[in-house]
Simulated scan of single mutants.
Amino acid sequence: MNSKPDAQSTCPIERSLAFLGDSWTMLILRDANAGVTRFDQFKKNLGIAPTILTKRLATLTDERLLEKKLYSERPPREEYVLTDAGRDFLPVLFMIAAWGQKHRGGGRLTRFLDAENGTELKPAAIDTVTGFELGTRPIRIVVPE
């Protein structure tokens, strides 16, 4: 495997990490899934430098996880709204959170609750073909020829 993620790789993990492998990108997606849409909100929530935020938002827009929508014509102002691809990333974020609670826990941690019934989320990745939880059985990686 290469030391730097490659967007042209045959591995979907490597392709995804080519633009997602940065923590700021994932934190922007976390906040977008929580309803943050405006540049200043992202900047305030994340404590991120404006230049870095501008670059990450451009990448997420180019990669079609976010799209710009005009919310004010005078002066012209845009917000960043999740696309289907951006919403599809939410389960990935919760799987990272579950791993972090298990292996990087301790102290005070943010909890994620179901908004309707108040129960804490306990995400698990299940193979829909076999019904088995991922990580409980060996896998085989098949590289295309």
Score class of each variant (00 low, 15 high):
36 V>H: 06
96 I>Q: 14
74 R>M: 13
75 P>I: 08
77 R>M: 12
74 R>P: 01
28 I>H: 06
94 F>D: 15
71 Y>I: 08
101 Q>W: 12
69 K>L: 10
31 D>P: 08
64 R>N: 14
66 L>M: 12
25 T>M: 11
104 R>E: 08
41 Q>P: 02
98 A>N: 14
61 T>R: 03
49 A>W: 01
30 R>T: 12
95 M>C: 11
48 I>V: 11
40 D>P: 08
95 M>W: 06
26 M>Q: 07
78 E>R: 09
34 A>F: 15
52 I>M: 02
102 K>Y: 02
86 G>C: 05
100 G>K: 07
75 P>Q: 04
46 L>C: 04
41 Q>D: 15
22 D>R: 08
48 I>A: 00
34 A>P: 05
100 G>D: 14
43 K>R: 11
56 R>H: 11
22 D>E: 11
89 F>E: 04
83 T>Y: 05
41 Q>L: 15
27 L>S: 13
74 R>I: 11
99 W>K: 13
62 D>H: 09
73 E>R: 14
97 A>I: 14
73 E>Y: 14
43 K>M: 00
42 F>H: 04
43 K>Q: 13
26 M>C: 01
61 T>E: 04
29 L>P: 00
22 D>Y: 04
28 I>W: 03
33 N>Y: 13
66 L>F: 13
55 K>Y: 03
86 G>H: 02
83 T>P: 09
39 F>T: 03
38 R>G: 09
80 Y>I: 04
69 K>S: 10
97 A>Y: 14
49 A>F: 03
86 G>M: 04
70 L>Y: 10
76 P>D: 09
64 R>G: 04
53 L>W: 04
